[in-house]
Design a protein around this nucleic acid. Sequence first.
DNA 1: CAGATATGATTGCATGTACAACTACTGCCC
DNA 2: GGGCAGTAGTTGTACATGCAATCATATCTG
Lengths: 168, 168
Amino acid sequence: MATTEAATRAPRIDAEQAAAWRAFLRAHALMLRKIGEDFAAAGLPPFAWYEVLLVLYEAPEHHLQPSELADELVLSRSGLSRMIDRIEESGLVVRRACPGDRRAIHVELTEEGEKMLDTMWCVYARCIADHFLPAMGEQAWTIREAMESVAESVRRRKGDGAAPSDDS
Amino acid sequence: MATTEAATRAPRIDAEQAAAWRAFLRAHALMLRKIGEDFAAAGLPPFAWYEVLLVLYEAPEHHLQPSELADELVLSRSGLSRMIDRIEESGLVVRRACPGDRRAIHVELTEEGEKMLDTMWCVYARCIADHFLPAMGEQAWTIREAMESVAESVRRRKGDGAAPSDDS
DNA sequence: CAGATATGATTGCATGTACAACTACTGCCC
DNA sequence: GGGCAGTAGTTGTACATGCAATCATATCTG
């Protein structure tokens, strides 16, 4: 075993908090399955592609490097590399040389990709509007704050396997 | 195309709401990656196993049928079937005949599985306590309510490809 | 400038997951 | 009871994803 003994004691987590976490997991799983079903039913590409196209669309000139993309999407580089293969094959993005750094490339959104983004958004937005937003109600802001705080917390300690957190 | 034209118009979603949704996705992705890393670093099985073990543990007599398990975990039956293969091979669960219905089986948690659940919880709980709970603060209840509401909304309309939702 | 080190992307391999087809059994209807 | 639809689980196949190794290029150091 390559571990310290840091894993021998579990911090206390009360029922309400545990329920919040599990509800979070479940909501995510159900939403993603639903979105995937809706995309499939409409003959559209998988959800993962949507996120790639969106991030590219939002980038300064509709292009990014794979590594930036992988970071943004919380995906491994290898996985992303192959995904780009498939998306490129469909003509929604292209790989272009990156001026100034010849080992890097730009992944650029095509016109066709931009249209696809739009088409997918129609299906996607309905799913969010039907299931996610109503549940947020007036708390959208609160939820957003909390979620962003989670993300920041994880990002801050990316490397730490098991940081000391003062439970008794 | 096998779809109605219901996908041609996207409901309006304002920036705050969209940000909440995206923060939700990102928080989930980051948390799951972190948990996976922590489990791997501790030489423990993948996160998916934990959820199987937990659901079994919580079941009436520490056993469930695969289909119930698949439902609970939002997983396909085939995927679950193979996962059970692997978990069973590790001795954490066993398949047993189901009295009263000879096509069904029980998947039952072993003693060893129960111990593993405990070990994994130590790592897992720390991750939640370190990154998720602090971000919830006093809002744990609000978040839980919202997340459960999302889940219920999706479950209610499981089959509907694109239900009519009154956007203009 | 040469060599060492770091960074960006891809590929081999292993694993995980889903859909569709299949087998086995149950329950219904005639 | 015999046949037919439905349900539970598994398997063939394809696809998706991650880690580790690799190749090419960049940057740093002496």
